[in-house]
């Protein structure tokens, strides 16, 4: 319990950038949760004969290539983009962080084997890895979540391990060990609270990575499949509207940019 409290106290003293990014993320979660409830139409409903209609009072964001309401579809697509990216980020960060921190206390051999495996995973470019899995397993949402979770795990592992190692060398950890504290106390109470800030911003970065990869896949037609829709596939299906400057393609583009650029700017560009 007190470990949790120290961690929360650590989070409360975050850099303003990370706090802003967290607020922003919360706002997007709220939109993903509540957005579809506000949608005036069902996502698949054809509401107008006019395709690629411009902004109007009836359909605020116009209509898409089949005459569906872009606004409603957009609200649904935000839900899927945020949901899938969040789940995969949770997988990658949970596994990565736990392994990364745990290996600071395990034997050297566990670390060596794990480290080599992670290096191997890192040497397959992320989009390529995703394409391989999709070629074999098809485009289901669980497969996407799992694949992206695996793809971004080595990064989370490396970040947390580097952080934990750096802090483990700190003199206050030595002091704690010299006092005779056990490993779990040292890891949970001495090391972890000092990692919270960097770890949270790492989660933010990995979320952005996941959104980017998912959107790219969907744009290639290999991500979220109809009738479901996410931001990338929304752009893909309406890409012909580009010639007319239709909101159907421009709006999802802008929303996607708002999502990723916003979080990255809030984090202050900590990614290398």
């Amino acid at each position: 319990m007190s470990a949790l409290r120290t961690c929360l106290a650590g989070a409360a003293r975050l850099a303003p950038g990370s706090r802003r990014a967290l607020l922003l993320l919360a706002a997007w979660f709220a939109l993903a949760a509540l957005g579809p409830l506000l949608a005036p139409h069902a996502p698949g409903e054809i509401v107008d004969r006019e395709v690629f209609a411009p902004f109007s009072v009836r359909h605020w964001l116009g209509t898409d290539y089949l005459g569906r309401d872009v606004g409603s579809r957009l609200l649904w697509s935000v839900r899927y983009t945020v949901l899938i990216s969040t789940l995969s980020t949770l997988i990658s960060c949970c596994c990565g962080f736990v392994l990364g921190i745990a290996t600071t206390a395990t034997s050297v051999w566990v670390e060596r084997v794990l480290g080599r495996l992670m290096d191997g995973l890192l040497s397959i470019p992320s989009l390529l890895f995703a394409l391989l899995v999709i070629a074999a397993a098809g485009e289901s949402i669980p497969a996407l979540v799992l694949t992206m979770g695996v793809i971004y795990m080595p990064g989370a592992y490396r970040t947390s391990r580097a952080l934990a190692l750096r802090i483990a060398r700190a003199d206050y950890v030595t002091a704690s060990l010299a006092r005779g504290e056990n490993r779990s106390f040292v890891i949970l109470r001495e090391i972890l609270p000092n990692m919270m800030g960097p770890l949270l911003s790492d989660i933010g970065l990995r979320f952005v990575y996941a959104v980017l990869l998912l959107s790219n896949l969907s744009f290639l037609g290999l991500g979220v499949q109809p009738p479901l829709v996410d931001l990338g596939s929304l752009v893909r299906e309406n890409v012909l509207g580009l010639a007319y400057g239709a909101p159907a393609v421009l709006v999802p583009t802008v929303v996607l940019a708002l999502l990723t650029v916003g979080i990255n700017l809030a984090l202050g560009g900590q990614r290398s």
Partner: peptide, 22 residues
């Protein structure tokens, strides 16, 4: 630059098409 690295490549491509071709 941060803005550009934060968006997916297809978005850049879409913008490029919109600006230079359309």
């Amino acid at each position: 630059l941060l803005g550009v690295v934060s968006v997916p490549v297809f978005l850049l491509a879409t913008v490029a098409v919109f600006v230079f071709a359309v």
